[in-house]
Design a binder for these strands. Structure first.
Lengths: 137, 137
DNA sequence: GTCCGTGCAAAAGCTTTGCAGCCTT
DNA sequence: AAGGCTGCAAAGCTTTTGCACGGAC
């Protein structure tokens, strides 16, 4: 049983360069930035290749992915600060009852140098009850 | 000086219903879910209206928005667990030096009921040095 | 010679926006 | 009457995917 989407066996210069680039910077680049940087070396490079290789590298645990932006925003009417539980299986989101920790901002600020921390966002990921019992079957 | 994009003055039944719906549920809906729910009451409703009103409600502080998904993913070669600083002005992302807190998962689990917490994601938002000095001018 | 990886282009998926007409004030 | 709000449709953006070709092994 193997759920990997990409089963790479071959070597790819492009993939090497993407990983190398990521390892050489602390900018947490977007796919597009990588594309721009590598375009001069591979004039016929395509964004599809970037994305495919990022997915492969990610699958291999060689890189991490941080999602931002707004593909699939969720909304809620509760406007006080609180944290969420997110089910990785079904996408369900629940509010979590632990108190909001303002102290976290101070702790972060203490290590953030000249960066000025104003707030934070914390989410917990795992399995909701439903999906857990599904998996037990 | 007013930077608000939406300056609402008028009343809208659709907006009322969106807020009412959000207040009546704990599902943290997507725009599409709201659209589906309201479609029967407003047969000619459009998703554009949903999005516009969500933006207005958000601007008024009546609702919160949680972004997930992948519009603008960022990648990094550092694969150990760590936290990030995100500049709200320029979008720059930096690694934060505070230790990764595995205890957080346990704390969350203790309040999560039947939800099984496996990991978490924590980001700090604020202003980087550059953008801070820009603002002082 | 296989068949994986690439480039290219089209498609997909969510969100935004232009526009004309309607509705609130 | 003024102009914000709506529905509709098109556009915008990032990411994904189908396909044929070229390259790795």
């Amino acid at each position: 049983m193997n759920n990997l989407k990409y089963q790479i066996t071959r070597h790819s210069v492009q993939r090497d360069r993407i990983l190398e680039l990521l390892r050489s910077t602390d900018r947490h680049p977007t796919a597009d930035w990588l594309y721009d940087k590598l375009k001069s070396d591979f004039p016929r490079l395509s964004l599809g290749t970037i994305y495919r290789n990022l997915a492969i590298l990610h699958e291999q645990g060689l890189i991490r992915k941080i999602s931002f932006g707004s593909a699939f925003d969720r909304f809620e009417a509760r406007v006080d600060h609180h944290y969420h539980l997110v089910c990785e299986e079904c996408g369900r989101i629940m509010d979590l009852a632990i108190p909001f920790d303002e102290e976290l901002n101070k702790k972060a600020n203490a290590s953030a140098g000249t960066f000025q921390v104003r707030h934070h966002r914390l989410e917990f990921y795992g399995l909701c009850e439903n999906c857990r019992s599904q998996k037990d079957k």
